[in-house]
């Protein structure tokens, strides 16, 4: 009895400690984004929104925010589209060398982003392609396409085959089968792939850093802010991104995944 209680106390204490470790930096980040003073470290001088005002007044930061959204959305749409088409072809048709094709499509997942970025950078340089948001987007599709392909391919179960056959039997061509039957049936995993892609692209640094020049994404802009050392403005933009992401996450959790659970 005593051993059970002590084991239970130990568990909860461990849980509390690790949670404290996990939340410590985030809590500090958010708390000192409201710092009334120039240093985001103790002591806390008082509550102020001045750094948030500074963030919204920063043209470059806001432009980077917009760039990040565009790159994340466009590259994710491309990744999901290409991934879906490839998954459909490889799951539903017998193609020669399909194992090799799957391997090739998955391969970029096993290579560090730094190496992917470096490879693309050297090729773009050799071909004299100017660096831009487009080259960043190309890189982000390279890292997100394997993910989207893998998620959608894994969800194309054999139990869907007859449903697609039925559609074809009733006169639907391939595009109609995909648009009206396959994609709606796989919508949960397609959306999961899409949002995961958006998250990865939104948060990606090294590819965006090496493959952009004048227009940069948010992580790259924040990176350059770090040169000024500890700065409550960095706390403010970091907190904003965090809180916005958590809000999106909660909305998704409540609407999308709540609905699929019911079905």
């Amino acid at each position: 009895m005593l051993r059970q209680i002590s084991a239970s106390v130990l568990s909860w204490a461990y849980l509390a400690l690790v949670y404290a470790f996990i939340f410590l930096p985030v809590a500090v980040l958010v708390l000192f984004s409201f710092q009334d003073g120039r240093l985001p470290v103790p002591p806390f001088n008082g509550f102020s929104l001045q750094w948030y005002e500074a963030v919204f007044a920063d043209r470059k930061l806001m432009a980077a925010l917009g760039n990040s959204m565009v790159v994340a959305l466009v590259s994710s749409v491309i990744s999901v589209l290409l991934g879906f088409l490839a998954a459909y072809a490889l799951a539903r048709y017998k193609l020669p060398g399909s194992a090799l094709q799957r391997g090739l499509l998955i391969a970029p997942m096993t290579v560090s982003y730094l190496i992917i970025a470096l490879g693309l950078l050297s090729l773009m340089n050799a071909l004299h392609v100017p660096l831009s948001l487009m080259t960043v987007g190309i890189g982000h599709v390279v890292i997100n396409l394997p993910l989207c392909f893998a998620i959608i391919y894994a969800s194309m179960g054999d139990h869907h085959i007859n449903i697609e056959r039925a559609a074809r039997d009733l006169g639907a061509n391939d595009f109609k089968v995909m648009a009206l039957v396959t994609a709606p049936m796989l919508m949960p995993s397609i959306l999961a792939a899409f949002f995961l892609s958006v998250t990865f692209s939104w948060d990606e640094f090294i590819i965006a850093f090496l493959l952009s020049r004048f227009d940069v994404t948010l992580p790259v802009e924040i990176w350059s802010m770090l040169r000024s050392g500890l700065n409550p403005k960095t706390n403010a933009i970091g907190s904003l991104v965090f809180l916005a992401s958590v809000a999106v996450l909660l909305i998704l959790e409540l609407s999308l995944f709540g609905r699929t659970k019911k079905q």
Partner: peptide, 20 residues
């Protein structure tokens, strides 16, 4: 001739109804 072009339709064992 492809299934869609035939004057046949198939009723599948698992019914294959469109779930959505």
């Amino acid at each position: 001739v492809a299934p869609a072009k035939r004057p046949t339709t198939t009723m599948f064992q698992d019914y294959a109804l469109f779930p959505h």
